[in-house]
Write a protein that binds this DNA or RNA. Structure first.
Length: 889
RNA sequence: GGGCUAUUAGCUCAGUUGGUUAGAGCGCUUCCUUGACAUGGAAGAGGUCAGUGGUCCGAAUCCACUAUAGCCCACCA
């Protein structure tokens, strides 16, 4: 083996082998299925830390299950991402000085497909760098033929069921993207604006003095004066006595002369502003509802691009909405209608894609009725059929589901699934294909031809295809073996920010169209943040690029470090240094492997293997076997509970501390080296397989280097270690007591090393150690202790012996270090005094505890006994120290 | 306004049915380069577990309140 591990070479070598040999590929049929669909990244996307986190978790679970014998499918793919992708291509067009309108719809869509062909593979390539064991033969795209079929089918079916409808509705509208947005595509941000107080004269009021043109008026407060020309009423609260006399009267809309009524509605809050609100049904969602209740006219005064139209008045027509605001305010002031202006902070909606201020706009859109879909989705989580991990997310899910709003699904874009609704002569038909639509149309009017049918211009919200992902990717609406076998999927792993966008809707779609939930467990992880806890973003420039990290530290290092900092309960803060942990661990694994190989070359491992050893093993050998057994069981349990981080920590500690720090040190000078190495060989192979889900590349490379695997074999498909059988454990004499005995022995070794350090005895100096114990087994460890302690002698004296030497108490016995060298008496005396003080504090506490009747009577016996033992021990220690203090006095 | 979460060592975090003197990694201090590994080894310093009150023999852990921070939902023109 080379002195240094070449991660880059190993990673470049193994991934293509895995892929080519079909190790990622799953076939329905045998065994127990385990399936996961990947949250499809945007086809325009590049791999960021969020993906790295998300996919590392999935790959760990998937590799673990696959090795554990499950028939495992991890299904990859990408999302066509309507707005995002269209924006990217439009941007490219702009560089050529063209707009999409110049190309026309068909040519533009063609152009987007070309873009996809050329650049759409970026993220998919990057996912391979991470080591994702996704079944690439099943790679899907939300806009591919099959998924598109599923979308058309779903739309048609919902329409037939009356769950899809087209309605005049107030929607969030992005003037820059030129499309409606769903509620959750709008981000609210703080805005420093103004509140303008405007007088609306009561009809019939007399002209007043200058600056106050009418004597009788109502005053409204508004943040959006530019919508004034669209007002069709002013409203007061029905309980507001101040204005009761006005209700039913008419007022004059300033600058237009139009007369509008004063109405009363609960929506108005008495305390806010003047307690009088202008009602603009076409430009505000609340006003829209008020307008519906009071049968008010809806006057749309704005164009789709954010400019004013003719209904705003000739003067403002064509003006941008913000320009218009300024102009209108100036005119109100000039006309004496503006009373005063206040600063006012509120929240304003912005487009989540392009950040433009969102407009409320009246338009015809398609909607899905969500209530009937939500009810079974709530039930599925309540009943436990679907489980959130961590469980608390279900609360947030319920909260949303129970207050669900209809989903606006039409988008005024060109890139996406075109709505399968066709119009002719005032009729609408909805069908999966144009042919089917024509047939339906003919049933209404036999004379209709294809040329008469006009398909709806809009496309569907991207999430309208994503919500079908778990089954559309498996071939639905066809009946397929995949669906039969792999649906419902087992785990869905995603971040909290798309619970509503995606997860909740998948649950609804799965239950509605498949009659089964799309997945059993929803695993929600945190977001990756920077060292200061800020979200990673391009504009802040605080993003870490996973590809750079792979370049610098290796994919295994990235994966392991991510796993180690991943907590499902909170967001993860990362900085570059964190990835050194993973890299260092890779190096450690490599070096340990080198050590084993070198040792084996010098003294070949016992070839007969572990079975031949019977009950002749040393305590240290039993200990490592026992620890290995524990590690296997522990990791299996932790992964089953989605405790990726705890698992990483457990396997890290097992490998580094148990194997490298202790067992390898033991094996160097083991009494029966071939046997010790044979054990190491077995333990190491188990460790590699435990590590494989976290660090697939280095484990594969080392497994081959060490000859665990031949060419053409892979650790990916090796059995995940289960620990040793009861039979093996009995034959070798593994038990808890021996395990504890060796832990105690290590404690003694550590104690002696600590004594050396405290008394400044150089590590190379041979010392004399004494241990006070009556345990006959302990005495049998003398040789091994000598080596570990670098002691020329280890003597045993009866427990309770009282030697005038520095000592430490351990579970193994009291360890004494004979001081032959020189010691700074004054410093020692001071240090001992301090320690005595500490001890006295503890003894006092422990005595009080044991004097407490309630404790002695109520606490479990073992706890009380332990407390007694501890107290005794510390009293003894105190005595020792006092003696030492005299020695140094 | 409604909901959720967090607060443990200088930093990032464990601590899952309440039970030894609260742990890990990084950082810091001291010592160690005769080969598995300095991307390493040995030892060490560092915490009244945000605060107050309560339940209990016993609380980082359970309850209440307070403070601070963060997230989500809904928004008052």
């Amino acid at each position: 083996m080379d002195k240094h591990y070449d991660a880059k070479a190993a990673e470049a070598k193994w991934y293509p082998i895995w892929e080519k040999n079909g190790y990622f590929h799953a076939e329905p049929g045998k065994g127990e299925p385990y399936s996961v669909v990947i949250p499809p990244p945007n086809v325009t996307g590049i791999l960021h830390m969020g993906h790295a986190l998300n996919q590392t978790i999935q790959d760990i679970l998937v590799r673990w299950r696959r090795m554990s014998g499950f028939n495992t499918l991890w299904l990859p793919g990408t999302d066509h991402a309507g707005i995002a992708t269209q924006n990217v291509v439009e941007k490219a067009l702009r560089k050529e000085g063209k707009r999409r309108q110049d190309l026309g719809r068909e040519a533009f869509v063609e152009r987007v497909w070309e873009w996809k062909k050329q650049y759409g593979g970026t993220i998919v390539h990057q996912q391979r760098m991470l080591g994702n064991s996704t079944d690439w033969q099943r790679e899907r795209f939300t806009f591919d033929e099959g998924c598109s079929k599923a979308v058309a089918k779903v739309f048609t079916r919902l329409y037939d069921e009356g769950l899809v409808y087209k309605g005049n509705y107030i929607v969030n509208w992005c003037p820059r993207c030129g499309t409606a947005l769903a509620n959750d595509e709008v981000e609210h941000e703080a805005n420093h604006g103004h509140l303008w107080y405007v007088r609306y004269p009561v009809v019939g009021s007399e002209k007043g003095a200058a600056g106050e043109p009418y004597k009788d008026y109502v005053m409204v407060a508004t943040t959006r004066p530019e919508t004034l020309p669209g007002d069709t009423a002013v409203a007061v609260n029905p309980k507001d006595e101040r204005y009761a006399h006005l209700v039913g009267k008419m007022v004059i809309l300033p600058l237009t002369g139009r007369e509008i009524p004063v109405i009363s509605d609960d929506y108005v809050e008495k305390e806010f502003g003047t307690g009088i609100v202008k009602i603009t049904p076409a430009h505000d969602p609340n006003d829209f509802l008020v307008g519906k209740r009071h049968n008010l006219e809806e006057i749309n005064i704005m164009n789709g691009d954010g400019t004013m139209n003719a209904l705003a008045g000739a003067k403002y027509e064509g003006m941008d909405r913000f320009k218009c605001r300024e102009a209108l305010v100036a005119d109100l002031e000039a006309g004496g209608y503006l009373d005063h202006t206040e600063d006012y902070d509120n929240q304003v909606g912005h487009c989540y894609r392009c950040h433009e201020t969102v407009e409320s706009r009246l338009s015809k859109q398609w909607f899905v009725k969500m209530k009937p879909l939500a009810e079974p989705a709530i039930e599925a989580v309540k009943s436990g059929e679907i489980r959130f991990v961590p469980e608390r997310w279900s609360k947030i899910y319920f909260n949303w589901m129970e207050n669900i709003q209809d989903w606006c699904i039409s988008r005024q874009l060109w890139w996406g699934h075109r709505i399968p609704a066709y119009y002719f002569g005032g009729n609408t038909v909805v069908a999966e294909t144009p042919e089917a639509a024509l047939e339906k149309a003919k049933a209404i009017d036999p004379a209709v031809t294809m040329a008469d049918l006009k398909q709806d211009e809009d496309v569907l919200d991207t999430w309208f295809s994503s919500w079908l992902w778990p089954f559309s990717t498996m071939g639905w609406p066809e009946k397929t073996a995949d669906l039969d076998y792999y649906y419902p999927t087992t785990d869905l792993v995603t971040a909290q920010d798309i619970i509503f966008f995606w997860v909740a809707r998948m649950v609804m779609a799965g239950l509605h169209f498949m009659g089964k939930p799309p997945f059993r467990n929803i695993v929600i992880h945190g977001i990756v943040r920077d060292a200061q806890g800020r979200k990673m973003s391009k504009s802040l420039g605080n993003s870490l690029d996973p590809l750079e990290l792979i370049e610098q530290y290796s994919a295994d290092a990235l994966r392991f470090s991510i796993a180690l900092i991943t907590s499902l309960d909170c967001d993860s803060k990362v900085s570059k240094e964190k990835f050194e942990i993973g890299r260092n661990f890779c190096t450690k694994i490599w070096n340990a492997a080198r050590f084993m190989q070198m040792q084996e070359e010098a003294a070949p491992a016992n070839a007969e293997g572990l079975a031949a050893f019977g009950n002749a093993l040393t305590a240290d050998e039993k200990h490592i076997l026992y620890a290995t057994d524990l590690a296997c069981r522990k990791l299996d349990r932790l992964l089953g509970e989605y405790r990726i981080q705890d698992g990483a920590l457990a396997v890290y500690d097992f490998f580094w501390t148990q194997i490298c720090d202790w067992y390898v040190e033991y094996a160097k000078d083991a009494p029966d080296k071939p046997r010790a190495l044979a054990i190491l060989r077995d333990v190491f192979w188990k460790a590699l397989r435990l590590l494989h889900p976290y660090m697939p590349f280095v484990t594969e490379e080392v497994a081959h280097q060490l000859g665990y695997l031949k060419d053409g074999e892979t650790i990916m498909l090796a059995e995940f270690p289960k620990g040793y059988t009861d039979g093996e454990k009995a034959a070798w004499g593994l038990d808890e007591a021996t395990y504890a005995f060796v832990n105690a022995k290590r404690e003694a070794i550590t104690a002696l090393r600590a004594l050396r350090a405290e008394y400044k005895v150089p590590p190379a100096t041979w010392v004399k150690a004494t241990i006070a114990t009556d345990d006959a087994k302990a005495k049998g460890e003398a040789d091994s202790l000598k080596r570990a302690m670098r002691a020329e002698s280890v003597e045993f004296v009866p427990a309770g012996s009282d030697l005038a030497m520095p000592s430490k108490m351990t579970a193994f016995g009291t360890v004494y270090l004979s001081l032959e060298g020189l010691v700074d008496k004054a410093a020692e005396s001071k240090r001992i005094a301090l320690e005595l003080q500490k001890l006295a504090g503890f003894i006092k506490g422990a005595e009080a505890k044991l004097a407490n009747k309630a404790f002695v009577e109520n606490a479990p016996e073992a706890i009380v006994a332990e407390a007694r033992r501890k107290l005794e021990e510390n009293r003894e220690k105190e005595g020792q120290l006092r003696k030492l203090a005299k020695l140094f006095a």
